[in-house]
Write a protein that binds this DNA or RNA. Structure first.
Lengths: 150, 150
DNA sequence: CGGAGATGGTTTAATATTGAACTATCTTAA
DNA sequence: TTAAGATAGTTCAATATTAAACCATCTCCG
């Protein structure tokens, strides 16, 4: 068997794994999103609140890094959260370029109640895998995801 | 150790795997998208062309199922592909509710050239994993993704 | 000091995305 | 045959998303 065939087979395996990875992520997201929608939150809005909840106040740039979104997008997501009174913007005194995003009392209450429920829903989604399989999946995904830095 | 602690540990594992799954999918997508953008295509547009290329003409509903998008979205994606002359809509004679989407000669040429290059890029993205690991990742993802039907 | 360049955020234009309301068409059953 | 219900597609409103242009601010020299 020549390298040409070997290369083709390798490519099929890579494509197949890639497609299944994407489908899994999309399927799980799609099944989880309605859960958040009931609380009137989009996935990004939830992600932002969750980051602020677990990491404390962040500037928009750091928030963007955490939820893997562009600067322009963060402006809009924070805009919408601010309109609903869930977060507030505070211009940093030391360096006036930075805007720190803080959870309001209302926002903290919402995410504090929602997060445990959402975590439960995620556990339900992943329940088809055993503990060992979850770890295996996590470690494989981590390597694929981090490939960028290589 | 009581069930409470066991349950919590299980939840942490599930959350951790979930986050890594999402990150991996987003990271790979983000690294792949610029590749398509060079050809002036978005991920959805590429997905639609690729489905038509490998499966033949499809009605919009089937196209939506293939690329996991809503009906309203398909209308727009096909609109934009049609504007660029890559696909054409044909109203079905037998049942006039259906619109069949066909690749044009231009569209077929584009996806025919682009697909192999894109597949190569995907292989590069997945190259951190061995063949066996790719299969393992694929099978775990498949089970998580298909959980919906359960 | 003062300009050059870097950095954080906003705005804008284009496309994506969904759910819901709506139109057109088909099917079914009374 | 015809009215009711199902189905395919479109439209609309809202938000997401990005890249690029842009403004404000800061830092670092010279």
């Amino acid at each position: 068997m020549g390298t040409r065939h070997k290369g083709a087979s390798r490519e099929v395996k890579a494509l197949d794994a890639y497609i299944k990875l994407m489908r899994a992520a999309e399927s799980v997201s799609a099944r989880l999103a309605p859960h958040l929608a009931k609380a009137g939150l989009t996935v990004s809005q939830f992600g932002a609140l969750e980051a602020l909840y677990h990491l404390g106040p962040l500037c928009q740039r750091d928030l963007g890094k955490k939820i893997l979104k562009s600067g322009g997008n963060i402006t809009m997501v924070v805009d919408n959260l601010e309109k609903r009174g869930l977060v507030e913007r505070v211009r940093a005194e030391s360096d006036r370029r930075y805007v720190t995003v803080n959870l309001t009392k209302t926002g903290r209450k919402l995410i504090g109640e929602l997060f445990p429920r959402h975590a439960g829903a995620i556990r339900e989604e992943m329940c088809v895998l055993s503990d060992a399989e979850l770890e295996k999946l996590g470690s494989l995904c981590k390597r694929v995801g981090l490939k960028a830095k290589a």
